[in-house]
Design a protein around this nucleic acid. Structure first.
Length: 924
RNA sequence: GCUGGGGUGGCGGAAUUGGUAGACGCCCAGGACUUAAAAUCCUGUGCCCUUAGGGGCGUACGGGUUCGAUUCCCGUCCCCAGUACCA
């Protein structure tokens, strides 16, 4: 190849060579340790966007690095090819979703190949192919057998805009994860997977992987699963005109008691009411007892809940007293039962005890409806001072709840407490609630106990007396996987009039999607309109039956896809457990943090199920997780129509301020444009086409720049300007290699004693760079090693060709540089390596390894030591590396500038940090 | 509101976890080469003062600890992300 750098030519050459030599095809076995490098698989939309390039470039850096470090690396890619866009395309343009998807895969594979990513292409999977979704169904049947898949009617999250049901995760924040529109509720019969069975494990497992996962992701998962420890307490029920039900033990099915969940059982003496959700069964049960106005109000609250929620606006507390009475099993106190809009049926038991003095929400509620507010915890008190409150009696309970109508009561006042700030037992609406821990008072026999002790003891007490028990609740819900969609994996269930719900037999899998179905996008299952699909016979009795016409959530596909890569052609099992045992778990996973909860919780759940099936032997599927930041771009809108303007294809005139921020933008015909920063994508009109970048700058420069531009976890605002620097750098390295290629081939090792200072300096730089690059890559930093390589290239550039003994040092530097460059710019690195090595075999094929760092060679023989006076830099001295502190000190005092500064001053102290600096403290 | 992460030149960003702040790159300016341009190479480039040597200030702001603070502590302000009545 000639001496001018033509990216395209080099890239084509090496892409062909890699394909020929199959160096990226991974096989089990050998002595090398395995390494599984995975990136989140793309949806085949038809176009790679720059965010993909960032994700896959980072993955490729790791894959190359590990290969050069001697690992047997599995680096696969596949397609998350089921899902809505294919169906949308079918509805809008009448295309066949299967053909549309296959074509997109083809074109995106081309884009990935042109980037020169080092995938083992043989292992590709695609979710929409029967060979793959067969095993979605296989897993479903297994889970059905295990009791982990079940059907129930629920209020599902429903997106009116997309005409789709959504899982809780997909509807988080009350907004559709796909289109961002508000989510409403709809009643549907749905299939669920029991993720809640693994709730504890999903939380505990986070401890094991914490070190390798971004803290933000771990935290979000913890919050999402949301474990709270507390207690159930049963409040006995009484109906106003029917006397008292003496059995507080009876549970909810009878509705003679109402069970609440609380994390603060220690505050139970402060309860002023039991508040239940509008949908609570106790309301249904005693409907007949409610006054018409109360019933109407409850219906209103219920209806209000179904409305789409605006996340910006805080919902005002609302509720109504039902007339029912509940009995606090600890105090025997009678409390009113209220319905409150702030109590959710979906969490805990759908009922809470209201303790306004020690809970913000209950306080607000009590404030609004004038309920009494009784304090039972003294916060921040020592055990000693609490003793005095032991004698105090709870006198509040004698006050009847009816009096609450007349406003906050003062009847609780003065329980004989010594501390004046604590002397009030009741709060009024001007005070604020306090949920801090402390010492109990006004709590009968529990007075004087610390809340921490009481929490445990009271829960046990409730259990012993059979009106409650310690309990743990979760925020996590079971995973609803039914979708009324065509383009997904059919749920392998058959409904028979005689036998009921019957699972399809394993040997009949896959249940194939029909070639086509009428797609209207109106919400009912398209498969329900295809008799050839749903008409079937019962696997049990052979009688006529019909199939389930819902398909699975596409997150099912992505929950286990990376296990399929290990054994992609298995037709009897999702994968061979022994093969997977070699490669899995994933050593390094890289993807966007938008998948921090959904995908990454599902996939952890799936791994635990696979373990219980016996397919794998570990608990956690992903050891290390790197979440990369989004790539965003400047987006322009037509001021009048609000429509996005394509950039840069449409000429836009932009003025920027000194900080590079846009101050004004106009279209070419002079119309003012609005602008903003948005995630890059072609559909948003701010996309940069990776193909275009590769065409103009080359794959290597594109990849190198995107790695160099910002730390991987930061958001990256795309500005094309900097990419020129990446091109320049590659060209500089190219020229260096060609300048030195004939000289260095003769270079022989020279002992350090005989070599010149400049050649020793270069070797030092080389080895320092090796260390920096290795350490950075090991800790998944991609921008700083590029900087280090640039420094090394600059150092090589400073060497004079005329220097007689430079040969070996330059050879070592250049070879190291080129090999270390391979993860970032593999084509260029390969080509330059072939020039230096005079072999076209390729680095991996010829067994090249990442250069080894030598501490000895990296060490400087002379170091620069800053000398400070009173902490301010005043001079620098040069000293031998091993110079003693005493030597450094005397050298500092001998320094001209220093003696000038300290002349006539009293030296108070001298601080010497060996090998680092000297600081002289003076006075006067 | 709560939780988490941040605030460093014109810009993207470095800085061995207390030890020379601003590496590397972009932008910009000047110079060399060239008939010219491109490319390349060299020099400069935090701010202010100074003819120079040099000096002062500087990591959001205000305090503190220390010989020494971008780094640790306290307080304030701002930005980004997640979350939203989770009992």
């Amino acid at each position: 190849m000639d001496e001018k750098y033509f990216a395209k030519k080099v890239e084509r050459k090496w892409q062909d060579k890699w394909a020929e030599s199959r160096v990226f095809e991974a096989e089990i076995g050998g002595d090398r340790p395995k390494f599984y490098q995975l990136e989140m698989l793309p949806y085949p939309s038809g176009n790679l966007h720059i965010g993909h390039v960032r994700n896959y470039s980072a993955g490729d850096v790791v894959a190359w690095f590990k290969r050069l470090k001697g690992f047997n690396v599995l680096h696969p890619i596949g397609w998350d090819s089921f899902g809505q866009p294919a169906e949308d395309a079918a509805i809008k343009r009448g295309v066949n979703p299967r053909e549309w998807t296959e074509e997109n895969i083809k074109s995106m594979q081309g884009q990935l190949e042109r980037l020169g990513l080092s995938y083992d292409w043989r292992r590709q999977m695609a979710a929409h192919r029967p060979e793959y979704y067969k095993f979605d169904q296989w897993f479903f049947l297994k889970m059905y057998e295990m009791g982990l898949a079940y059907k129930k009617t629920t209020q599902v999250n429903w997106c009116e805009h997309d005409q789709a049901t959504l899982s809780n995760e997909q509807a988080s924040g009350g907004l559709c994860w796909r289109c961002g529109n508000p989510v409403t509720k709809k009643s549907l019969e749905q299939w669920f997977l029991k993720t809640t069975d693994y709730a504890d494990e999903l939380i505990d497992g986070l401890n094991d992987i914490e070190s390798g996962w971004a803290p933000a992701v771990v935290k979000r998962q913890r919050d999402w699963i949301g474990r709270s420890e507390g207690a159930f307490v049963d409040f006995g029920l009484r109906i106003s005109d029917r006397g008292f039900d003496e059995n507080p033990k009876s549970e909810i099915p009878d509705h003679t008691s109402v069970r609440v969940f609380t994390t603060r059982i220690d505050t139970i003496y402060g309860a002023n009411a039991v508040v239940v959700a509008a949908e609570h069964p106790v309301i249904e049960k005693f409907k007949g007892e409610l006054s018409p106005t109360v019933a109407a109000k409850i219906d209103e609250i219920k209806a209000e809940k179904l409305k789409p929620t605006d996340r910006e606006v805080e919902i005002e507390k609302d509720g109504i007293g039902t007339g029912l009475k509940a009995v606090n099993p600890f105090s025997g106190e009678e409390l009113p039962v209220w319905v409150g809009n702030y109590v959710m049926m979906e969490y805990g038991t759908g009922a809470v005890m209201s303790v306004p003095a020690h809970d913000e929400r209950d306080f607000e509620f009590a404030k609004k409806f004038g309920l009494p507010i009784k304090r039972v915890i003294k916060s921040g008190e020592s055990r000693e001072s609490s003793e005095s409150s032991e004698s105090s009696e709870s006198i509040g309970s004698s006050e009847s709840v009816e009096s609450s109508e007349s406003g906050p009561s003062t009847a609780w006042a003065n329980a004989g407490l010594s501390d004046p700030t604590d002397s009030t037992d009741s709060l009024d609406s001007r005070d604020s609630p306090n949920s801090a821990y402390g010492v109990m008072f006004n709590s009968g026999e529990w007075n004087g106990k610390t809340t921490e002790d009481a929490k445990k003891e009271m829960a046990e007490f409730a259990r012993a007396n059979e009106f409650g028990e310690p309990a743990v609740t979760f925020r996590l819900r079971d995973w609803g996987i039914s979708r009324q969609r065509f383009w997904g994996s059919p749920i392998p269930i058959i409904y028979c009039d005689k036998c009921g719900t019957v699972p399809e037999k394993f040997e009949n899998l896959p249940v194939r999607l029909p070639e086509n179905a009428p797609l209207t996008g109106t919400g009912e299952s398209p498969l329900a309109k295809v008799p050839e699909f749903y008409e079937t016979t019962c696997p049990n009795c052979d009688g006529p039956a019909h199939r389930e016409t819902d398909t699975m959530d596409t997150f099912v596909d992505s929950s286990w896809y990376f296990f399929r890569y290990t054994d992609p052609n298995n037709s009897t099992l999702p994968f061979d457990p022994e093969i997977a045992a070699y490669w899995a778990p994933v050593d390094q996973y890289i993807g966007g943090d938008d998948h921090a909860v959904m995908h990454l919780i599902y996939t952890r759940f799936w791994a635990k199920v696979m373990r219980d099936i016996g397919l794998v032997k570990f608990d956690e599927p992903v050891k290390r997780l790197l979440t990369q930041g989004m790539v965003v771009g400047e987006t322009f809108f037509d001021d009048a129509t609000g429509k996005r303007i394509y950039y840069p294809a449409d000429a836009i005139e932009i003025s920027r301020d000194t900080k590079g921020k846009i101050t004004e933008a106009r279209s070419k015909d002079g119309k003012p444009l609005k602008y903003g920063i948005e995630r890059m994508s072609k559909s948003k009109g701010n996309g940069v086409d990776p193909d275009e970048m590769v065409e103009i700058y080359g794959a290597d420069a594109t990849r190198l720049f995107i790695m160099f531009a910002a730390p991987i976890e930061h958001e990256l605002v795309w500005h094309e300007a900097g990419i020129e620097g990446a091109v320049r750098f590659l060209q500089r390295v190219w020229r260096l290699v060609h300048k030195w290629k004939n000289i260095v081939s003769e270079g022989e090792p020279v002992t350090s004693e005989s070599s010149s200072e400049s050649s020793r300096a270069l070797r030092r730089k080389t080895h320092q760079t090796i260390k920096r690059v290795s350490d950075s890559l090991e800790s998944l930093q991609f921008n700083t090693p590029v900087a280090a390589l640039m420094e090394l290239a600059n150092a090589i550039g400073d060497v004079d060709v005329a220097e007689t003994d430079a040969g070996y040092a330059v050879k070592e530097a250049l070879t190291s540089l080129v090999v270390m460059l391979a993860p970032f710019a593999p084509h260029t690195a390969e080509e330059l390596y072939s020039v230096l090595a005079r072999s076209d075999l390729g680095m991996l094929a010829s067994g090249v390894r990442f250069p080894e760092y030598s501490e000895e060679l990296a060490k400087a023989d002379e170091i620069e030591i800053p000398v400070q006076v009173n902490g301010k830099l005043r001079s620098r001295i040069f000293a031998p590396t091993e110079a003693s502190n005493e030597t450094l000190e005397s050298m500092a005092f001998a320094d001209e500038k220093i003696s000038e500064v300290i002349a006539g001053k009293e030296v108070v102290k001298v601080v010497v940090v060996s090998g680092r600096l000297v600081n002289i403290v003076i006075r006067g």
